[in-house]
Structures are given as C-alpha cells and as structure tokens.
Amino acid sequence: MKINFLLNGKETEIEIEPDRRVIDLLREECGLTGSKECCGAGECGACTILVDGESRLSCLMLAAQLEGREVITIEGLAKDGCFHVVQQAFVDYGAVQCGFCTPGMILAAVDLLRRNPTPSREQIREGISGNICRCTGYQKIVDAVYFASLALQGVN
C-alpha cells in the first residue's frame, strides 16, 4: 500500500507492505539507520522514535500506522545544523559510550522533557527506564537530561 506521512519535516510517500515494521521501513527503505534495533520485542527502547511528538517503539509499529502522522527520528532532531539541547547535553556531560542506545535514549528524554519540563533526577530515571543502556550505568545520562532541562528553562 501507499502511505503518506511527515518524516523529519518532509512530506513522504512510500509504497510498502502494510505489515512491514516501522524500524525496517526507516532503516531499509529510508536509509535512516540512526534508529537501532536491539531486541525487536519492545524491551530495550533503542528503536524509539517520536510519532506526533510522543515516543514510540518503532520495532512494535507497522508501516500502515504511520499514515498521516508526523515522525521524528534522531536524524531529524537537530535543526539547521544545530544540535537539540538534549543532544548537546549528551555530548557535554559524557552520556555517550558505545552510543547504540543513544538515539533512542535522547528521543525518550525529549519526550520526557515535553511532558515534564522540570523533572527531578528520580523522575528522569523513571522517564528513561524503558531504555536499556549497557555501558554507562545511566548516571551521566541522568546528568545530561537534568542539565538539558535546566537549559530549556533558561537556567545556566
């Protein structure tokens, strides 16, 4: 079937089997390999994307579900060559090691900060608890999200 959706700000029309997973559509048809697949079962969060601004697991979504939606992947988060505040914070606070969880983790954090712009560290831990990281022990990720929330509030 033919589906139409907004992908990283661009009107996109794709001819695709309706039961194709969104993660495969993004990676194999659109060449957007920033969304990672690590478990294929909705357990790890590495394939997180934003659908109409809310975080969704692209390994559990089918292509047809994107019809008429707005999709943001990690590739579409930076604007005009400038990192999103959360991306910059991940660099600045050492939240990246192997980086395979990073795209999903950043998008989960963006969604968290949209819902709660002033989270406590504990609320950040809860907000990213659906995203597994095997390298960092999460501490520097929590730091990054916390300082990103301050930056978004205009606190330096």
């Binding site: 920033g34 660099v91 980086g99």
Partner: peptide, 23 residues
C-alpha cells in the same frame, strides 16, 4: 582534561555507521 569524545558528535545525531548499519 575532560576532552569531549569525538565519537559523541556523530553518535548523538544517528550519523555514526556501525557494522549493523551497513546495507
């Protein structure tokens, strides 16, 4: 010094190509 990791810049944007990302 706490030099930034060069790989962090490409990893936060999804541009870094891992072996799994080759098609």
């Amino acid at each position: 010094m706490n030099a930034p990791r060069a790989d962090a810049f490409t990893k936060v944007t999804g541009k870094e190509q891992y072996a799994a990302d080759y098609y």
